[in-house]
Design a protein around this nucleic acid. Structure first.
Lengths: 132, 132
DNA sequence: CGGAATCCTTGTAGATACTG
DNA sequence: CAGTATCTACAAGGATTCCG
């Protein structure tokens, strides 16, 4: 990447970039999805997000929020009151994404047991090959 | 994971894990999805995967394949010929996942331009505030 | 051909402290 | 309240090499 590194990784998207990677890149990271879920119900404040996500650091919340805002997935509204109040809200595009994500969740729900068993079986086979 | 750490390790999912995180954890990583896509059309060999994915290293291909196999998403079939021939194929569960992933792709396709423009606008605003 | 082992660079995220 | 800045860690991923 010849570009200047301004903090936000702005790597040149590969020309061949398949849409699959594109969306995954956008949703990757530990927190993006959880923020989308938490904000899906309507406008939510910074601190509310911080508490509802449970485990996220202030830093990561800010960073992830910034990226989502940059991609046009959340809007940031500052209420010039005192103390300050900032609300985040999903854009229509993000709401669509959220719906799609729910399909993924459904898949996970349906096959959660299958996957757990597959793992257990796989691990058992390799961990105790000396078992008689 | 009692296993030795060979590089990429799939940490035990937290008990509180919401399904969203669960599926994302499974699909995360740069290569999982691309392998699912490449193998969706039918059995495919290791080397074919390596070439069709373009950019993946031997190491990551092996590692990702192992994890997918462990989760019961791909089957690994060794043909005891010489030279060796190993074929990977998606399981029914993985095919379902693949379909769901396509919905995500559709979303990306539909909103690719919107997102690109959002980014451009966002970056422009912050990069040249001193512009006269 | 398919894969394992090793080494090294990087991104991603946590903790902490300071500000408007 | 809602951030920002810095410093650190760890684990993902790349490159290379050896093996069946």
């Amino acid at each position: 990447m010849s570009q200047r590194n301004t903090g936000v990784t702005v790597q040149v998207v590969n020309a061949h970039a398949c849409p699959v990677r594109e969306v995954l890149d956008r949703v990757s990271g530990k927190w993006s999805v959880q923020i989308l879920v938490a904000a899906a119900h309507g406008p939510i404040r910074f601190t509310e997000l911080e508490r509802s996500i449970e485990g996220i650091s202030r830093r990561m919340l800010t960073l992830t929020l910034r990226n989502l805002e940059r991609d046009g997935l959340v809007t940031r509204t500052v209420h010039p009151t005192v103390p300050p109040k900032v609300e985040y809200e999903l854009t229509p595009v993000a709401l669509e994404l959220h719906e799609t994500l729910q399909r993924l969740t459904d898949w996970a729900e349906r096959n959660r047991v299958y996957i757990a068993e597959s793992r257990a079986a796989y691990d058992t086979e390799r961990e105790e090959p000396a078992d008689a």
